[in-house]
Design a protein around this nucleic acid. Structure first.
Lengths: 255, 255
DNA sequence: TGTACATCAGTGAACGCGCGTTCACTGATGTAC
DNA sequence: TGTACATCAGTGAACGCGCGTTCACTGATGTAC
């Protein structure tokens, strides 16, 4: 009984202050991350920025690991929110448009937040293991969004399964079946496997750009390069321009 | 005159000892990197492993930055050597086979040397900027090998240029032209741009696997997943099985 | 409404650690005459 | 072949720094009667 009362009660001033302080810690951790990288993230530095003695932070965060976990979840959710928002600006049936929006949103966020992107998709932080039970849900939002998109297109009859049987051996098919039922999808093996490739390829292209793998000055027009890559990846997943886009219809030149 | 004599003379015992010590330092740095990650690489730790007082290392290496640079070059070259060796096991005209060997060699090295792979292709080490004049040559070996392969196939008339004109806008075309002439290639824009995508996609797939982005247990058969990805990427670059492989000829099902 | 007690935020000192880098030095190894 | 000098590898102490984490503590804020 008092339990339900407590659950209904609005937060006390103390509780609100506490929540705000935790928010501040995460925000300051974010900034620190952006400047010095994940490996150099330090509770003492956050405490300094917060204007408080170092030991005080331990009232809010168990240890350095937990702050990293909070920042990981925070970043995954911000990325997920922006991707979802970008996708939602287009009609449900504009699958190619939505795919383009998804990829562009990932890249835009990554370029704006390179250090946080690096925390999520770069080399693992040495000595830190993310707790799966807290990070899996936020960490899978992008691949869920991508697969939902492909699945929707497939169910709408807008995607033809590619002829990849030759390279989908039984053990791989088992993996794909497990994923398909786990995610509640309908797409056949070929499309699912290609979806995974499109996913990793998208992040591969973004990582190379964010991490500076293209030499300085190699690409003066990175936006246009990425647009090309996205278009080719859409085609790879079966979301070709010709079948999806309202605009100019380019003739096929088979061979 | 004495200069040429010096250049011809075999190394003195002191010079040999010095060279060996530097090799030892790089080797120990490599091991330290593998265990603790690039951000935690420490000259003091290397000195300890070397059995020498910390300041002694400064006789061989200017500072921590330079050791990182040595390790970067060392890793790029080991990767490049293994890729070249793997490619060279197959006949020059087996383009699809060579592509497969290249991709598999990258993945094999990355899985065997995850920390060094992370140094090359993961998040940048905070506060460290690689000196382009020393790292560019070793750092571009894989993309050179890949492009040489595609270029060879194209020159042999085994690759058809894709119909990507719609997404290759003039500024992108300018970039591609600069790259083409810089690398001495003949491949047209469409193939070159796709080659870049294949390159980033290959590393995207490898990075996700090495960095643990696939959740634990998602793929029980990662080898087969990667084989599928490589096959699809080969097709993307125009090196489709049907036109390249001696084996089974799968019929195309357009739409 | 007022008092006694519990809870909580934040302090300050401390522990023990590792780091990069400099510097004057001791010996051993090489070189020139 | 032998001696005087230069070069180099390695030492040990030191500087100044930052880190994570613990612990006993002081006050302020809340809660129960």
């Amino acid at each position: 009984m008092p339990q339900t009362e407590l659950a209904v009660k609005p937060p006390t001033p103390r509780e609100r202050a506490r929540a705000r302080t935790i928010e501040d810690i995460v925000r300051l951790g974010r900034e620190h991350l952006a400047v010095h990288g994940a490996a150099a993230l330090s509770l003492r530095a956050v405490a300094r920025d917060l204007g408080v003695v170092s030991s005080a932070v331990y009232r809010y965060v168990e240890n350095r690991e937990e702050l990293l976990t909070l920042l990981l979840i925070d970043a995954y959710n911000e990325l997920g929110d922006e991707v979802d928002a970008a996708v939602a600006t287009l009609p449900v049936t504009d699958f190619a448009g939505r795919f383009n929006a998804l990829g562009s949103a990932v890249r835009r966020w990554a370029l704006r937040e390179p250090a946080r992107y690096g925390l999520l998709f770069g080399s693992p932080v040495p000595g830190y293991q993310a707790p799966a039970e807290r990070t899996t849900a936020p960490g899978t939002r992008v691949i869920y969004a991508l697969m939902a998109l492909l699945d929707g297109a497939y169910r709408a009859g807008r995607l033809a399964a590619p002829d990849d049987q030759a390279v989908i051996v039984p053990v791989l098919s088992d993996d794909l079946e497990r994923i398909r039922s786990g995610m509640g999808l309908a797409v056949p093996d070929g499309l699912l496997a290609r979806g995974a490739l499109v996913w990793t390829s998208l992040f591969g292209a973004v990582s190379f750009e964010v991490f500076g793998q293209y030499g300085a000055g190699t690409f003066a027009a990175p936006d246009e390069l990425f647009a090309h890559h996205l278009a080719v990846l859409a085609e790879l997943a079966g979301l070709g321009q010709s079948s999806q886009r309202a605009g100019r219809q380019t003739a096929d030149h088979p061979e």
